[in-house]
């Protein structure tokens, strides 16, 4: 490097350094100003709510599945993490030739029917439901047994009357859930997975649990029966004798085999 090019390089560096520092100092000033008194810098705008446009709902040439509900739809208890949802998607993919896509699994652990009907008001949930042509859902288990689970072996909350009262309450919300889904998508096939009794192996709970679950399933069936594009997939009988085989170690959620059994039922009814 000769003297001349060195001195030219130095002046470039100095200029670049000076400019950088100036630009950054301005940025720093803007940044501080904007944080301390929001929207005080130029070029800011106020946000407006925009609903995303949805393309024409998918036609019959593909299966677009959206799932919503509680931990069962989430797949809690399944060691492989697949739950019935991914198993259904895989099986459907095998048994027929249309492409199957799982759009979203919007299930949240511990969700009750009242929370779900609330959640269905969200624009962003609606966006996904609008795109789908099949909606799978499970809900209700937590409405009935949420408190029972935490005190599983205390008999306080497990008496029949309280549980029946809970079922009565929950069913009202279940109706809102179905209406909520229909509001977003009048055409999709809605598949409701019925409840099972996770306590059939506990002598004192077997009968009470069966009564309550059956009451819930009856009420759900009455609602589903009114809509020709809704079906209910029963799971009650699956678990009646097979609790040991189908339930995971938390004694509430199905294990992989349990989810497999549920998934097979669903595929049988919608393929």
């Amino acid at each position: 490097m000769n003297r001349k090019s060195t001195s030219r390089l130095w002046s470039w560096i100095a200029l670049f350094g000076l400019l950088s520092t100036l630009v950054l100092a301005v940025g720093f000033g803007f940044g501080v100003a904007d944080i301390l008194s929001p929207a005080s810098v130029p070029f800011t705008e106020m946000p407006s709510v925009q609903t995303p446009p949805v393309k024409e709902t998918a036609q019959a040439d593909e299966w677009l599945i959206a799932t919503i509900g509680d931990s069962l739809t989430r797949g809690t208890g399944d060691g492989t993490g697949e739950g019935y949802v991914r198993r259904v998607v895989k099986m459907l993919d095998k048994v027929q030739d249309k492409p199957v896509t799982l759009l979203n699994n919007m299930a949240v652990n511990g969700m009750r029917a009242d929370q779900l009907s609330e959640r269905l008001n969200q624009e962003s949930i609606g966006y996904v439901l609008k795109k789908a042509n099949i909606v799978l859902l499970t809900i209700g288990g937590n409405d009935l047994f949420q408190s029972a689970r935490s005190e599983q072996f205390g008999d306080q909350s497990l008496n029949q009357d309280t549980l029946l009262a809970k079922a009565d309450q929950g069913v009202v919300h279940l109706k809102k859930v179905f209406a909520g889904i229909r509001k977003w998508n009048p055409d999709a096939l809605i598949v409701y997975v019925g409840l099972y009794n996770p306590f059939t192996d506990l002598e004192e709970m077997r009968e009470i649990g069966n009564n309550v679950v059956q009451k819930w399933n009856d009420a759900a069936f009455q609602m589903i029966n009114k809509d020709k594009n809704m079906i209910m997939v029963p799971t009650f009988d699956l678990f009646q004798q097979n609790i040991g085989m189908y339930l995971s170690s938390d004694h509430f959620h199905p294990n992989g085999d349990g989810y497999q059994a549920i998934a097979e039922r669903i595929v049988q009814s919608i393929r």
Partner: peptide
């Protein structure tokens, strides 16, 4: 603008 402010704060 966001980047300008961000770089300023980083600076």
């Amino acid at each position: 603008m966001y980047m300008l402010m961000q770089c300023g704060l980083i600076w």
